[in-house]
Amino acid sequence: MTVRDLGYRAYDGVRLPASRNTYVLLGHAMRRAWGSWLVKIAVFLGWIPLVVYLIKVMFVYWLMSKLEGGRPPPGEAADALGILTDPGESIRNLFNYQVWAFVTLITLGAGSGTIAEDFTHKAFQFYFAKPVTATQYLLARTGATAIFSFMLTFIPALILVLGIVVAADPSLRLQHFGLVLPALFYSLLISSVLSVMAVATSSISKSRALTMSAWIVLLIVPQSIASLVSAIGNVSWFYLASPPALLGLVGDALFKTVDTEHLVRWYHAAPLLIALTAGSIWLANRRVRNAEVIT
C-alpha cells in the first residue's frame, strides 16, 4: 500500500484574485526601484528647486509688503516680482528643473534597466509560471517608475502653487489656485510618457548598461542637437526629435508660457508624444511576449 505523507495537502483555502497580482508586482517593482541609488539621490535632492522657489516666494512676499500698495512696480522689476502676480512661468520652470535633474534620474535608475535586468535574471520564467500576464508585468514595471516621477513633479508643483496662493494678493488667490489642474495634468503626462519610454528602452537588450546608455542618449542627444541648431540657425523644428522638448512644448501651452519666437507648438508635439508612447508600449509588450517563455 502506498504510504501517504500527511504533511502535504493541496491548499483549498481562499485565493486572492489574479488581478491583484498587478499590485503585488507593483510593490515589488517599487522596492526594486528604491534599491537604485539614482532613485534615492533623486528622491532626496528633488526638493531643492522647490525650496529655492519657496524662498523666492517668501522674499517677494516680504518685498511687496514693503512696497507702496503692496503691488509690484512697473517695468523690469515687475518681472522679478511676478512670481506672485503671474506664477505660471515659475511653475513651468520648476517642472523643467524637476524633469531634467530628477525625473531623468528616476527613469534612468528605475525604468531604463528594469526589463533588461529581468532578462538577465531570467525572471520571466518565475513570474509567468504564476497567474501573471505580460500586461500586468508591464503595468507594474512602468507604474513604479511613473509613481516616483509623479511624486517628484506634482508634489513640488502643488506645494509651490499653494505657497504662491497663500502669499499672493487675495484677489488673485483663486486664479492662482487654478494652476493645480494643469500641474496635475502635466505631472501625469511627464511621468507616464517618460516611464513608458524608459521601460520600453529597457526591453531592447539584455544588457542593462546598454539600455541605460540608450536612454541617456535618447534624452540628451536630440535635445542638444535641437538647442544647437536653434541657437545657430534659429530653427526650432529639431525640438520635435527630443522627448523632453515635446513635453516642454505641451507644458508651455498648459502654463501659457509659449515662446513666440519658436514656430513649433503643442499641437505639433502632441501627436508625436502619442505616437512615441504607443510605439513604446508596443515595443515593450512585443519584447516581453517574445521573451523565451511567453508566446
Binding site: R15, F126, P131, V132
Partner: peptide, 8 residues
C-alpha cells in the same frame, strides 16, 4: 513574492 503571486 512568489507565494503572493499565487494568490495568498
Amino acid at each position: 513574492a512568489m507565494a503572493r503571486l499565487s494568490g495568498y
